[in-house]
Design a protein around this nucleic acid. Structure first.
Lengths: 235, 235
DNA sequence: TATTTAAGTGTTCTTTTTACAATTATAAAA
DNA sequence: TTTTATAATTGTAAAAAGAACACTTAAATA
């Protein structure tokens, strides 16, 4: 059923920037491209959109296929349309970003396509315009996380306040006073203190917290302000 | 030169949501679609992407062609990919939004395609998923204008503080105390007071201001916070 | 000259943000 | 058993920002 007969048609891809956190630093998941051009080079998780699926479906399918990952936070970022961005043939790419807890998915990852986690600072060169996509995604999550509690998507079910602070410091590449930080996060009412402690990081141990999911969903759309002095961030 | 031989190919459109301000309320520009399906129905300014152009070029070209408008603020919003969004043939659409001063472009608009301005509250039904696009665009500019001075793109070169306040109140569908509002906007240092007054709106007249363009560009990336009580907005 | 209308402007109180350091729990070492 | 080392936890005071609130002024028109 082709009706707009005279119009050009394009190959449509999706590329996914997967951010992960292991309790220490923010990491990004990369894969070695399995076909030409640039076969074997490091790349984002990408693939072509099929005839019957929308892009959300496509990005979920491709992530599942390449990494085994399923059901994580996934959001459309931007569409990249430079005519020569893929030297083989013009390909439009819509980028998505995902946020996951690295440890939660550790087992699933040991798969056919062996994707690997890279610290943002020690990342290999990427193919095409993928580097640009990563930079835009990083800016987007910084922007969004300054207002919404999305970074909890990167944490396990139970986490400690020092871990949470590590995460924020890692995302914003800054340091935050821990007294003020814990005051702020506790003031949101999003955290429920547990009795158990995490003793892996210190002798004393740090209390675990759960997210109050009801408040989390309720507050997600509210404007928050987690980051002190966003103007003075060390970018 | 077709190399990814087995992949599906799609028609790619861009649709532009053009917001305008006339000193009173926020308006949106619509056009009657010139071809089937839905010929004659109200629609966003849209068109198909051509083989050699990227989407920014396409959206500029289409806006120029349908409205005569050129060189305005234009930003990519989101890509809409539902397989049945266009009943004629599957068409991917990337939405852009534009911000302009209505009066500045008044003359150019009286053209072949006679686009018309509609107040957001008295808007006709739109074709396809264009209504969704408008809603997303509105959310985006509210979001963005709470942090960045983008709304100045909707104002003429010189404007008064009451006009500026009208604009903010119109975008956020709220009311703001005028003492606090003028304190805030003047505190940004973005405004330069002129000697002349605008006497069209009152007997006393209101002083004109210019944007300090240097500070405007410098502060654009900084986080601002113009809107009091963003949590309590009347959406 | 009086009236009308919107523009312009200051202060106080409250809330939020920031700066800053001592104490505590616990494991490991002595 | 005691000491030591390490990270977790907690409070206060000062500064800045935000919110509430009403009168005076300029200028056209009656």
């Amino acid at each position: 059923m082709i009706k707009y007969a005279k119009e050009s048609r394009f190959i449509q891809a999706v590329d996914c920037i997967v951010f992960g956190f292991d309790g220490e630093t923010l990491k990004i998941l990369l894969i070695q491209r399995g076909f030409e051009p640039e076969k074997g080079k490091w790349s984002l998780m990408g693939g072509f959109v099929k005839a019957g699926e929308d892009f959300d479906q496509a990005s979920n399918r491709i992530l599942k296929q390449l990494t085994g990952l399923d059901g994580m936070y996934l959001e459309q970022l931007n569409t990249f349309s430079h005519p020569q961005r893929d030297p083989m043939e013009r390909t439009i790419s819509t980028a998505y970003f995902a946020l996951i807890d690295i440890n939660k998915y550790k087992i699933q990852l040991s798969d056919d396509y062996h994707p690997e986690w890279f610290s943002l600072k020690r990342m290999p060169k990427l193919i095409f315009d993928h580097q640009q996509m990563v930079e835009l995604a990083l800016r987007r999550i910084r922007y969004k996380a300054a207002l919404h509690p999305i970074l909890f998507e990167l944490l396990p079910n139970r986490f400690t306040i020092p871990q949470l602070q590590n995460l924020y410091e890692s995302v914003y590449n800054t340091t935050i006073d821990k007294r003020n930080f814990s005051k702020r996060v506790l003031a949101t009412g999003l955290l429920i203190k547990q009795e158990e402690k995490d003793k892996s990081g210190s002798k004393r141990g740090a209390y675990y917290y759960h997210l109050n999911m009801q408040k989390y969903y309720a507050k997600f759309q509210a404007f928050l302000n987690f980051i002190p002095n966003p103007t003075n961030l060390i970018f």
